[in-house]
Each structure stands twice: as C-alpha cells, then as structure tokens.
Design a protein around this nucleic acid. Structure first.
Lengths: 345, 345
DNA sequence: AACAGTTTTGCACACGATTTCAATCTAGGG
DNA sequence: CCCTAGATTGAAATCGTGTGCAAAACTGTT
C-alpha cells in the first residue's frame, strides 16, 4: 500500500477471508455475528485472518438482507448554529454508542426542501429519521417515508389539531409553557412591564409557538401584549432590530428572545450602542441555554431545553421502535425550565 | 398509511414499479439513470408510476454494483464547537450540492479512537473520508482505509518528514505561518513585548504547530519566547488559566490564543475579573475567525482560516479523486491571514 | 456400542439494484 | 421495397452479505 495509484482498491470480501482461513464463507459471516453459533476457536482464527486482510463486513450488503442500515438520518437547518450543533453533537455521540452512524442533511431554514431531501434520504434506508418542525412538514414526512418510522420534534400546542388527526409517526413533544412562565414571572417580579418578543424566522414553528405562549402568559398576568421585534435567530439581525426598536420605536424594559444567540445581539446593542444597562435598565431572557450563555460577557438568564433529556428521549423512541416495528405511535415529552443568571435580577 | 403499526413497512422496489407500469425492471433502472438510453415517453411513464408508488432506488443495492455509495465520511472532534460546526456546515452544504450525503462520526479529542472509528466507517464504504490531524493518525488512516482515498487535513510543518515518506493519501495542507506572522507583527507594533500562548489540548497537532510557529516568529523578531498558558480549546479553562497566569504567574501584555473560543475566555477573565482593559492593557489575538468573533462584546482580532477556501479545496480533492481513482496523491494548500478587529489596536 | 440430544456446518437462496450483451426495433437512404 | 446503422430492449450475471434448512459432527448416557 503506497501511492493511491497503486494501492489495492478493492476491499477484502468474506470470500477472500474464507479462502485464506480454509473455512466456508458462511463461517466468516458467523464469526462477525455475536449471536451466531460457531466454534470459538474457529471464530478466533477467522477474526485474526480478517484483521490481517483488513476485512470489514460491507454494511450495504448486510443491510440488504437484514433490513437494518445502522444509519439514522438527521435533518438540521444551519448546522453551524450553536444550539443545532450542540444538539447534533449530543445526538451523534449517543447514536454512536448504540452502533448507529449519523447521516446528516442540511436544509434551508424554511420548509421548501423537505420533500426533495426526505426523498433523497429515503434512498439510504435509514433505520430512523429525526426531523424538526422547523424545516419539515409533518404531512411530507408521512407521505415520503415508509420503511423507517420517523420522529417528529414539534410543539404540540401549535398544531394540536393536526397531531390528533394523524398519529403517523413517533413524536418528541417539547412543552414550552413552564419555562416561559417562570421567565415572565421573574422579569415581572423585578419590575418589568413593557415586554418585547425578539422573534426568530417568521415561518419557524418554534418561534411562533414561543411568541403565542409569551402573549398568552402576559395577558394572564394583566400585562400588555408584547411588542414584536422581527429577528431570524441570528446575532446581526437581533442587534440591528433591537437598535431600531429603541431608536425609532417604543423602548421596552424587558426583551424575551426566541433564542440565545438573538439575546446576545440584543444585549450587545443595548450595552455598546444604546448605553443601557442589562439588567438594570432592560431585562433580557433567551431560549435554549447554549454553552455560550454562561460566558461572562453575557451570563444570560434563559429558558433551558435540556439537551441530555432530549437526547435520551429521542434514543428511547428509536430503540423502542426498532425493537417493535409494529407498535402504535409513541410520544415522549420534554419540558423546559428557567436557568437564572445575570440578565434579569 | 395511518398508524405505524399498519403502515406498509416494505419499500417499493423496481420490480413493483416495473410490474405496474408493464415494463421490464431494467427499464426502471434506466429511467432513473440520466445517461441510460431509453425512449423518453417510456421514461416519463415509469417516473410517474414510481412517484405514485413512492419508489426511490435503494442506494445500498445501487452502491453494491456501481461501487459508489454517495457517502462522504467526516470525523469531527466535538461537533458542538463553533469552529468545527461551522466547517461541518459548510462542508455538508457543499457535499449535498454535489449529491453526497454526510456520514458523521464524532471522536474524543484525542487520537485513541481513530482505529475503531475508521474501521467502523469503512464498513459503510464511503466514497471519501475527511480526517483531521486532531483526532486521526496518518498511519492509521493508511492502514485501515483502502477503497476510498481519504483526505488528511494537517499542518505540513509539523510532520514534514512523515508526510514526505508516505504520500499515502490526498492532503489539505494548512499553512499557518502567514497569519501568525501578521498577528505578531501587529501586536509588536502596538508595543507588545511579553507574549503568552494560550494552548489548546496538549496532543492537538494544530496547537503544537501554532505554538512552535509563534515561538519561532517571536525569536526572529528578537522577542522572548512565549509563556505557555495551558488550555484545551474551551472557554472555561481559558478563563481559569488566564486568571491563574495573572494572579500567580507573570502578567503578560499580549495573549495569542490557539483558538477563538479560548481567546473569549481570556478576554472575559481580563475584563470582568482582573479589571484589565483589552486592548489597552493586554492585546489578544485568536485563531479561526468563527462567527462569534465579530460579536460586539469581543470584536476579536484573529487569524482567519478561510472556510469557503477550505471547503472548495476539499471538494476539489474529492471530485478529482473520484474522477480519476488511480492518479497519484494530490495536495491542496490553503493559507491563513489576519483579520484585524478591536482586541489589538 | 448404540442412541438421543445438542452444536456446528455449508449449500442455496434472497436482498435490490446495475451492467454487459445479444436480439429486436426504428429510421432513412438507395 | 430492401438494407444498414443506430437506438431500444430484456434475459442473465453480478455485487457482498445473512439466514433457513437439512446434514454432519459432537456430547454424554445407558
């Protein structure tokens, strides 16, 4: 094995291993399957020869006959976002521990690519697919995939009707009320009256759900409805639009951001450009609790989506579905809670 | 298609499409291959029937006979890191545009898992593998993979001898001198004399290469060798160790961090805990130029690894190798350059 | 030594596509 | 109307593996 040009470009197959070890090809297959019945010393011999020949079972061939690809597809909008990448990291780690490889796809942040991407992904026969409400329509999910039962991560309060009508797949429901309630209560407790909601991308179900919930809770507490600052989950936009709101619109004394990165943009706009103090002049709360939120420059109070909890719930759904492919659709539920740091007190 | 329990759990095959369309199975295959010769109206019919049956060619079966899996494996340490996730995002987007799916694997940040992971990955028959010097040994890379020619992203000054001796695979060489030189020059120009190097993980080739290079350039300019602050690329460690350096060790007037996130930690330690001003009292330069580096709270001067340039180079390597599998090993080179912001001037 | 019971073995087929290759069909020129 | 080059077609082989099934080998008991 020297230059790419001269290296052996054909993988070793089970046949070659069988021939060099003087056993049948079936034996090789059995040697690599822990549950197969084969004489221990024979297995050892085969594994040794396999190692020498640098042999690994071909997953594609294996998956054709077993029906298991050991692939889990994940569709993520903007892998580079802190929250998304942190979730992807946790999920990939967990999947790997269970013997799955992550098949990663990226979308635009809208719903426009869901059909194309799901169809393409389907070709790889993933054992499961994790799709987020952000970029995949439930109806498309149901129509395109058939072999793998996908998992739909959504916000039940938003599309309750649809969800009831069509339990087409397993779900992870994220309950956002609790954390949002705690956040509003805390800010109100410190004197906040006039709230703004720094939104994410307009067509994001997550931001819509959060905004509606914030409005509802403010109303319950006798506070005026939130002013909407239009964002897109990005720092730069949040920075700019917060500036606009305070310079051209009505100032507020509390900002509830749809995600942490947006909150950072708002905080930086308030502090560096508007000369306002956080939390004394304006209180800020974010959403997600990404690693960056505890950095000293921000020290953000935020509604936490517990990553470990989410990951475990998703993994449970996958494993349960794989163990019992014909069971009716399953739903796991995760909640949210406020993490109190320095941008409200 | 209603409940998971009752939904049709077997994918449509080319046979079924052929039967319902009254054509041969071969015709179905041809309909999906743009270069195959088939009468246009026949192809249209088949594609229509295929759509109705929700048929997609099985990639596993296809790859067995064509030898192309349309999979590109990427091994990343800590997907959640801003730099890593931003590179992964760019690469996935680029690969997807070329019809590849990303097969993602995560390692620990050391080299301990390279063999296990590469062996496992090999089973999926990726058309190419992108491996970083951070977590994969070149020797392991050469030994384990055979079918796909991998791409090794490394720092040529570090392992020049080894690289020369064994051109076993395609490479992306990152030349770090230029950017580092510019950074040191800028800091020295603003009066910096006593430098610290805030290192990454000890066994990271990237940080070793950067540290050696910084030392060399300081020497060339008649400055004392850098004090080493031991970090691990993480914010918290950088924060803590910077604190220790100034409280227990010798203060410095310039910090060269091995990555941007580390620089953020140092800056926050200096400003919030030590009451020092950046850049007036201490100058700070980072490495990577992640999205966060231009956030107003940091506004970091940093050595940029041009993501677009890297991505394009990697893609070129992959496509060239796939087009000509027997060509001798290829090398692309990318450089670095300083991005001047507010932490030095 | 014969028997029943349990492991271990290997043949043949299945999985779902693509790719020769030879046969058939089509169009156009003489 | 016939002939030929070129476009379409489909039967059969192939890719690398797991699994059902019947035969073979082995175990220990009488």
């Amino acid at each position: 094995m020297s230059d790419p040009a001269t290296r052996n470009r054909s993988r070793a197959t089970a046949d070659m291993v069988a021939r060099t070890a003087n056993v049948s090809r079936v034996a090789v297959s059995r040697a690599f399957n822990p549950h197969a019945s084969i004489k221990p010393e024979k297995r050892d011999l085969i594994l040794k020869v396999a190692q020498e020949l640098n042999y690994t079972p071909d997953m594609a061939a294996r998956s054709m006959v077993t029906g298991r690809s050991h692939l889990v597809g994940i569709i993520v909008p903007d892998v580079s976002g802190p929250w998304e990448s942190q979730e992807l990291d946790a999920m990939t780690t967990a999947l790997q521990a269970e013997g799955f490889a992550t098949l990663l796809f990226r979308t635009r942040d809208d719903l426009s690519m869901d059909e194309t991407l799901l169809t393409y992904m389907k070709g790889f026969n993933p054992d499961s697919v994790i799709a987020y409400a952000e970029n995949v329509r439930p109806t498309t999910l149901a129509r395109v995939l058939d072999r793998a039962v996908p998992i739909y991560v959504g916000y039940p309060d938003e599309e309750a009707a649809e969800a009831e009508a069509a339990p087409l797949f397993d779900r992870l429901d994220v309950l956002q009320r609790e954390g949002i309630e705690q956040a509003v209560a805390l800010m109100q407790g410190y004197g906040a009256r006039r709230f703004a909601f720094l939104a994410g991308k307009t067509n994001s179900l997550a931001t819509q759900s959060r905004e509606r919930m914030v409005g509802k809770i403010l109303a319950e507490r006798g506070l005026p409805p939130p002013i909407r600052i239009q964002g897109d989950y990005m720092y730069d936009t949040a920075y700019r639009e917060t500036l606009n709101q305070f310079r051209l619109g009505e100032p507020v004394d509390a900002i509830f951001a749809a995600n942490d990165v947006g909150a950072f943009g708002a905080i930086d706009a308030l502090r560096t450009e508007l000369g306002l103090r956080v939390p004394q002049d304006v209180k800020v709360v974010g959403f997600d609790d990404i690693h960056q939120s505890h950095w000293k420059s921000y020290n953000l109070t935020t509604v936490k989506l517990d990553l470990a909890e989410r990951t475990q719930a998703l993994l449970r759904l996958i494993l349960r579905r794989l163990k019992n492919p014909t069971s009716p659709s399953l739903t796991e539920t995760v909640s949210t809670r406020l993490v109190v740091r320095g941008t409200v007190g």
